[in-house]
Nucleic acid binder design. Structure first.
Lengths: 224, 224
DNA sequence: GGCTATATGAACTCAGCGTGAACGAATTCA
DNA sequence: TGAATTCGTTCACGCTGAGTTCATATAGCC
């Protein structure tokens, strides 16, 4: 599931947003200004940012600009009380993807977040299916035609990541950044071990497999 | 510049949008309902669609759904007089990327269109096609009409380089500098071997070939 | 024909990967 | 609380195939 960072100096607003987002099974992280947001981004792999503009320390414009300059490409949804054309223009020009004015309709925000994630090819479903393997994010379960497994966390997130972009090759580093966190220092071979354990569970499946791409990484796909 | 298709049954609104879009150097095409839009899409390469929901013949929802089902991935901005949550929800669920309610602020529409195009560009850079050969560089696969190959790293990058500038002759040194690195010390003949392995995979293709230019190098092109 | 550049089959090699086992950490259970 | 189980990680050893080289055949050019 997608990981969303809320940046707003108003705790009540963050709390409200969190409730709505968690109800839709998003993972939520929070920061109260741009500076704090940047430090969160260093430690976690974030899929989308919801940022207020008016904030102490570093405002939403500056945050957006710094992120884009630093090469971050995740969608950014700006939220603010300001609603003049000039404000919106500035927000979009800094690199925001969408813009909503307060008071924010939470339901509409959810729709927009999902549309952004869909466009960015980050799955926002809590159910994934590929080649006879069904993954239930809430229960950490996978269902194959023959069996239901309750997977250990690491194995589950790994499979989930692979299934979120079928056919896309993920390097071990990418997988580790996402599942272990950017600053983790686990051995790259650890990924291999988890892959093997996943493979063992699918060994008898006809339609699904995890493919090794030598020198690059792994990918999930339907068997030929 | 981007080519935008406006779909709305109201000529005046289309005209107004056209003026604003052309002022920003967009290329504008028009259709007055979903059915007409589909026929325009068959003939032209469209980068983004602005669609009204209420239309005779085929409404915006249906158009969006048909487009997504048919595999079109360009951003769609929905514009409508309706503004209930249910309407927005339906629009987004059908696969729209953004949603604005009438009366539309033309300046904001431009900002949103630009943001959508920017985002679409970021995520559509994974494919390359020439003469019936499709190259997917997320999956490291090439698809020919007859088969799909998962290429080894070096072979893939080599083909990718050649296809990035069809008809351009690349010297072995150029190819090596790019794929092996400037300081590499591999034999020039190594390139030949990889070229051969690529050729083997295309041996039965009618439209595509890698041509040797004696004394210079190789180039990729459509067969005569 | 003679020279040079390229094609091609085959052999080699070593980085990258699979895998079993082992051990500590975390979690569950009694 | 301690015991039992499950989970996460590391390590070491062996295998494999992608990448390279080499030797020979073939093709292009004057």
């Amino acid at each position: 599931m997608a990981r969303i960072l809320l940046v707003d100096d108003n705790v009540k607003i963050r709390k409200l947003m969190e409730i709505y987002l968690k109800r839709d099974a998003f993972e939520v992280l929070q920061a109260e200004d741009g500076t704090e947001a940047l430090s969160v981004l260093k430690k976690h792999n974030i899929n989308l940012i919801v940022a207020d503009i008016m904030m102490p320390e570093m405002d939403g414009y500056e945050l957006t600009e710094q992120l884009r300059d630093a090469g971050f490409t995740m969608p950014i949804l700006m939220v603010t009380a300001k609603e003049t054309y000039a404000d919106k223009k500035k927000g979009f020009e800094m690199g925001a993807d969408d813009y909503m004015t307060k008071p924010v309709d939470m339901d509409e925000m959810l729709l927009r977040i999902k549309a952004l994630l869909r466009r960015a090819k980050i799955s926002s479903e809590n159910r994934l299916v590929l080649g006879g393997v069904e993954l239930d994010y809430e229960a950490l379960e996978i269902r194959t035609p023959k069996q239901v497994y309750l997977l250990p966390k690491k194995e589950f997130y790994l499979l989930f990541k692979l299934l979120s972009h079928p056919k896309k090759i993920f390097t071990r580093q990418e997988l580790m950044d996402d599942i272990w966190g950017f600053d983790s220092e686990v051995d790259e071979r650890t990924v291999d071990v988890h892959i093997k354990r996943l493979r063992d569970k699918f060994s008898d499946l006809e339609e699904f497999e995890i493919v090794t791409v030598r020198g690059l990484g792994y990918k999930a796909e339907r068997k030929a």
